[in-house]
C-alpha cells in the first residue's frame, strides 16, 4: 500500500493497479456527493416521512460502507483485524442501545 514514488522503476502492473484504485476512489467520491445531494433534495421537497426516513437511513448506511471499504481500505487485504474491531465496536454499541431502549424503561 505504500505509495511508491520510485519512478525510475517502470512497473506497469503496479502503475495500472494504482490507476484503477484512483478511478475507484473518484467514483466513490462522486457517488458520496450524489448521495448527499439526494438526501438534501429528499428533505427540501418535503417527501412523505414514511418514505424519506428509511431512504435517508439507507443512504447513510451505504455511505458508511463506502467510507469503511473504499476510503479506509477495508476491502483490501490485511484489514481483517481492523474489520473485526470495527464490527466488534458496532456490535457492542448496538447491544447497548438495544438494551437501553428495549428493556430499560428510563
Amino acid at each position: 500500500m505504500a505509495n511508491n514514488t520510485n519512478t525510475g522503476n517502470p512497473d506497469t502492473f503496479h502503475k495500472q493497479k494504482h490507476k484503477d484504485e484512483m478511478i475507484k476512489q473518484l467514483i466513490t467520491f462522486v457517488l458520496m456527493i450524489v448521495f448527499t445531494i439526494i438526501a438534501f433534495v429528499v428533505v427540501l421537497t418535503g417527501m412523505d416521512k414514511f418514505f424519506a426516513i428509511p431512504l435517508l437511513l439507507l443512504l447513510a448506511v451505504v455511505q458508511v460502507g463506502f467510507q469503511f471499504y473504499y476510503f479506509m481500505h477495508m476491502k483490501d487485504k490485511g484489514h481483517e483485524m481492523p474489520s473485526l474491531m470495527i464490527y466488534g465496536g458496532i456490535g457492542a454499541a448496538i447491544v447497548t442501545v438495544l438494551a437501553l431502549t428495549l428493556i430499560i424503561w428510563w
Binding site: T96, I103, I104, W106
Partner: peptide, 18 residues
C-alpha cells in the same frame, strides 16, 4: 463485560425484566 453494566443499578428501578 459489556452486557452487564446495569447490575450496578438493580435498585434504581429499571423494572423486573431488565
Amino acid at each position: 463485560g459489556f452486557m452487564v453494566w446495569a447490575h450496578h443499578m438493580f435498585t434504581v428501578g429499571m423494572g423486573p425484566v431488565a
